[in-house]
Design a protein around this nucleic acid. Structure first.
Lengths: 189, 189
DNA sequence: ACACGTAACTAACACTTGTTAGTTAATATA
DNA sequence: TATATTAACTAACAAGTGTTAGTTACGTGT
């Protein structure tokens, strides 16, 4: 049980299957088949199905947390911070197409690490909300309900994993520019 | 197997459980327990677990399709049509809090009705995209990539089910106004 | 009083689930 | 060359899965 490469391969393969069918619908035999081995052999590398989900989700959640920390500690104004957040989501999602599905849809099946995940998520949303509130009081952002703004932007960013793989003709740079414009300035003329 | 009320109760209870844990993770015994009966008794009212999911998702998808048909056949301009779409999502979601979770997350577990669902969804998205494209050529909407606009707005509207129950202090009327403003005009000053 | 339909029950089915135990062949280390 | 380690295997387990069969109690209309 030493080769961490193999463990990573298993987690990557699992994340692909989890995206297609969800954590609960993917069996260890499905996963093994996809890896070209038998289900029992998986246990030479991982300790449980749970562990796969937990590693997958928590590492992503921590990546978001770290990114947010950098952003809130920067000296940028609020609109600039929002652009950084948009960029953070695009970057992480484009590097973790499959894992993002579990982060969004399978977090409730976490067991030992569920409360830690919820804590990270709450902190992330709180930080996001504070940026918006600051922006409103700064007169950088329109004086709408902050909660609705947070929800609206975060929904779009959280859905990137569904949609990003489809639009490969649009490169990341252009997408970032487009999203910045749409989310910040709206679409109406 | 006559009382349709009881069947509806079962489907409603199931939709609540599906929202919490997803279709695959909810067992017929879970559902029965929630109903206060035994699992086998469910089969006096329904023919299979699949049927529950199918009824739940297809009826919602058809509701969206009907709403969209009314909108595209109206004489309104594109921005007005977009407001109608926003309103459609808010209305259906506030009336089907739980079912919307399955529509978003469990559609891939449909079997016999999967292709029909995919057809409805594709048509809906095509209609949405056409409205945006028309709006761009009309000079009503900014000339950004139409696909990114569709994705951005639809992501927000599709996530309403997660977020709408939390914000009960904000009534539907105010929420509609807020969302119209944010999605159409953006948040930046 | 009667039969009928409804909606619950118990018991059981065949199959699938995650996981463990024990084994084996190949590879790396001494 | 001898020894350990790695990563696969087969076989099996106990629990849980959706579903079916057969039964029972109850209320309604004849």
């Amino acid at each position: 049980m030493k080769n961490e490469n193999r463990k990573t391969e298993i987690i990557n393969t699992a994340s692909k299957l989890f995206k297609e069918k969800g954590y609960s619908a993917v069996t260890m035999r499905d996963l093994a088949k996809e890896m070209g081995i038998k289900a029992a052999s998986l246990y030479n590398h991982i300790t449980s199905k749970q562990e796969i989900l937990s590693v997958l989700i928590i590492s992503l959640a921590e990546e978001f947390t770290e990114g947010m920390t950098v952003i809130i500690n920067s000296n940028n104004n609020c609109v600039e911070k929002l652009k950084q957040i948009i960029n953070l989501h695009i970057t992480i999602t484009s590097n973790n197409q499959f894992g993002m599905a579990s982060l969004n849809n399978d977090w409730m099946h976490l067991e030992a690490t569920l409360s830690y995940y919820l804590e990270l998520r709450k902190n992330y949303e709180d930080n996001f909300r504070e940026i918006i509130k600051k922006g409103i009081s700064n007169n950088e952002i329109i004086n709408e309900n902050a909660e609705v703004i947070v929800f609206s932007i975060l929904s779009t960013l959280r859905s990137l994993y569904i949609w990003l793989p489809i639009k490969e003709e649009l490169n990341i740079f252009k997408l970032t520019k487009n999203l910045n414009n749409i989310l910040l300035n709206g679409i109406s003329k």
